[in-house]
Design a binder for these strands. Structure first.
Lengths: 229, 229
DNA sequence: GCAAAAGTGTTGTGTCTACACCCATGT
DNA sequence: ACATGGGTGTAGACACAACACTTTTGC
C-alpha cells in the first residue's frame, strides 16, 4: 500500500450506533482482502486534501454506506495504528448516531450487529466500539443526546425502550418523563398516539426541544448557589 | 518544509496547565521564525516512527521544555490544520497537568502565562487552550483529577486555593473537605502543618487516595437504586 | 484574653427513585 | 365491567450549600 513514508497515512473511522429491534447495534463492514480478510471492521477511509476530519468521515460514510442521516457526530480518540513504516497510519475514531426510525440502505458487505455478540473484529475495533458506547451512555445522562437516537416524535414508552437499549439497564417511565421534562429537554407536541387493539389510554407524543447537543445537567459540584462568578 | 505530499504531517501539541501564584497558567513557547513569528504557540512537534501519540507528546515536552513531571495527560481533540498541500498537517492536542509544587526548568523562549490575559497566539491555539481548561474544570467536578494539580500532601485551604484558581469561582473550604472526604477522594496523612506567626489552629494534612484518574461522581441519572443491571 | 486559622454540627434545599394511585381507551 | 397501557401525587433518600459554632494555636 503506502511506501515507506516520512509521514503516516491519516484515516478516519466511525462507530455508528443505532437502536434497532430493541438493541443497540453498530454498523460494520466485512473485509474482503488481507490483512484480516473476513473479519469485520469499522467504516471509514483516508483523509483527502482540503477536507476536515469531520468532512472526511462524513464523506466515507455517505459513499460507502449511504448514511446521510447522522443525527450526531463527535470525535472519540486518535491512535497510531500500524507500527512499521509500511501500513503506518493515524486513525481518528468518531461516534455517529442514527435515529431509530431510519433504515438507511447499506451495501451487501455491510450490516448492523448488536453490541452483545459481535463477530470477529479486525484490528482493535472492539475497544473503539466500547469507547463509543461508554461515551453515549455517559452523555445520555447529562446531555440531551437522546435526540440523536429518537425519532422526531415519540411516546414516553417508546423513548424508554430506546434508553433501555442504549443504557443497558431498566428505567422507570415515570422518572424518565419527569427528569427530561424538568430539565426542559422534552416538550409535548400536542399530538396523541391512539392505543393498540388491546386498549389503553392514548399516549401523548413528545419531541426534543433542541436537536443539537446541549449539556442539561451541569457538573455543578462545589459551585456556590448565588453570585460568586 | 514538507513537499506537496499525499499524506499530511502528524503533529502533537499540549495544553500544559499548572496553578502558579494563585492563577491557572499555560506553558507557551514563542515562535522565532515565520510563519507567525513572535507569537506564542503550544509546545509539541511531529510524530516519529514507531511511537504512539502519547509517546510523541511526552518526548516533545521532555526535550523542549524539560517537563517530566506531568501528573496527568489526556487527549483533547485532533484537527486538520494547514489547508494547502504545503503545510498540510494533522494536529492532536493533549491536556497535561503539572502539580503546583513543582517548578520545572524551561528554556528562555518558553514561559508560563495566566489564562486571563494571554499574549498574541499563533494559529488557533486559543480555542485549544479553552478546550483544555473546560475539560479540566468539568473533570475536577466528577473525578479525582485534583491529584494532578495538588502537591503530595496539603492542607484543605491549600487545596482550596488550587481549586479556586482552576475553577475560577469561590469555594467553601468546609464543603470542599466534606465532598472530597465523602467520596473517598482524600485521606488524612496524620501529619499536621504548624500555624504561621499570626497563630491559628494547625492544619491537618491530606493526600489523594489514588493518584490516577478515577470517576468519583457517576452520571447515575435514570439508574435504578438496587438490582436491575 | 483576644485575634486568627481550622474544623464540626446542623439546617434547608433541590433532585432524584420508588410506589401507590388515578385516567382513558378497547373488548 | 374489566383488562391494558398512560400519566400524576407524594413520600423517602441523598447530596449538596450555607452558616453558626467550637477547637487550637500565637501574641
Amino acid at each position: 500500500m503506502t511506501p515507506a513514508a516520512t509521514t503516516p497515512a491519516q484515516t478516519t473511522v466511525a462507530v455508528v450506533l443505532q437502536v434497532r429491534d430493541g438493541s443497540l447495534q453498530v454498523l460494520l463492514w466485512q473485509r474482503a482482502k488481507e490483512p484480516q480478510s473476513g473479519r469485520w471492521a469499522l467504516p471509514g477511509g483516508t483523509l483527502a486534501r482540503g477536507e476536515s476530519l469531520d468532512d472526511s468521515i462524513r464523506r466515507h460514510l455517505a459513499a460507502k454506506v449511504d448514511v446521510q442521516e447522522l443525527a450526531h457526530l463527535e470525535q472519540l480518540e486518535t491512535r497510531v495504528d500500524g507500527a512499521a513504516p509500511v501500513d503506518w497510519q493515524v486513525t481518528t475514531a468518531f461516534l455517529g448516531l442514527v435515529p431509530s426510525h431510519l433504515d438507511p440502505a447499506i451495501p451487501p458487505d455491510t450490516s448492523w450487529h448488536p453490541l452483545d455478540g459481535l463477530p470477529q473484529l479486525a484490528f482493535d475495533s472492539g475497544t473503539t466500539i466500547e469507547r463509543g458506547r461508554d461515551r453515549l451512555r455517559a452523555k445520555l445522562s447529562y446531555t440531551n443526546l437522546g435526540f440523536a437516537l429518537a425519532p422526531p416524535a415519540f411516546s414516553i414508552s417508546e423513548l424508554r425502550a430506546i434508553y433501555v437499549a442504549a443504557l443497558g439497564h431498566a428505567i422507570s417511565p415515570t422518572n424518565l418523563q419527569r427528569v427530561l421534562l424538568r430539565r426542559g429537554v422534552l416538550e409535548q407536541t400536542g399530538a396523541v398516539r391512539p392505543p393498540g387493539p388491546s386498549g389503553g389510554r392514548p399516549a401523548a407524543l413528545f419531541c426534543f426541544r433542541v436537536r443539537s447537543l446541549a449539556i442539561t445537567d451541569q457538573f455543578a459540584v462545589l459551585r456556590p448557589r448565588r453570585g460568586g462568578d
